[in-house]
Amino acid sequence: MRQFFLDIVTGQRSRQGLWVLPLLMALAIVAFLTVRTGHMLRPDNLLNLLAQAMPLIITAIGQTFVVLVGGLDLSVGALISFSTAILALGGPAWILIPAVFLLAGLVGLINGVAVARLNVHPIIATLAMQYIIVGVTLVLRPVAGGSVPRVVIESVGGTFLGLPMQVYWGVVVVLVAWKLLHGSRFGLHLFAIGGGVASGAEDAAHNVGVAVKRNVIFAYVASACFAAAAGIFLAGRIVSGDPTVGNGYEIYAITAVAVGGTQLSGGIGSLHGTIIGAMVLALLSNGMTLLNVSPFVQTAIQGGILLLVVAMQTRRKMGL
């Protein structure tokens, strides 16, 4: 019985990884902040928190797809900035928004083809792509500025049926991601591919009839498209294009994914874990700001939390 609960808390035998511990951690932070500050659970603070965390949640969900097949996507931060720059080009929203997703999909396609078909290491492929996107973004918009279409601003800052828009964003993103990851053949295949990679039997998924290369390519496309969605959300919040607004998001996203119990060797992880991981990071920074902790100490503490959480995730195999 004791072993049973220990297994649940540490996610030892779970395909979804360790997500109960981060959840307890998030609840503990909420409880602590409620006692210390009093206004933690007020609706306006919660909505504000959700809006702050939304770009990270969306990007981290995208990253989860790639991490599940044992890959990494370092181009998402650059893609976020790129999306805001495209939206600020000026033009009708019904052209700009599909254009953002099309271009992001193309980037994901190139990443995926390079990794799955051309045998390039994910770190190299997506890092090179990051350089290229940063360069193109700087051509489009050397410094922050421009204005994004009204529709985008209202879709992020407005309200609908009495609820702020970030709630709808959250619901839609989670539904789409849940359908892809836990409600479709595609998601199941990602787990199969990643499980093989993690246990050293790279052909395992191929041998049972999974179209490995195609699914890996789709995983990178999904990651890029979620990053584009995060870019649209951020553009709506900052109301302009900014070539540096996405800097560092690839690291935050990987951090959130890892804190949420998804293993970087692939095959183990979950959507709710990633959401919890992103919320832990957002709660930490929100809470420490409320408590007037220096932003530099916040960085160090976030690193410490990351170290603590992954130290709990013991694996059989060594490595990445």
């Binding site: 160090a300 170290l307 060594m318």
Partner: peptide, 13 residues
């Protein structure tokens, strides 16, 4: 047996 990417990244952070 912790992920090398995450450990070294966390140490750096």
């Amino acid at each position: 047996r912790v992920s090398a990417v995450i450990v070294t990244l966390a140490v750096s952070i």
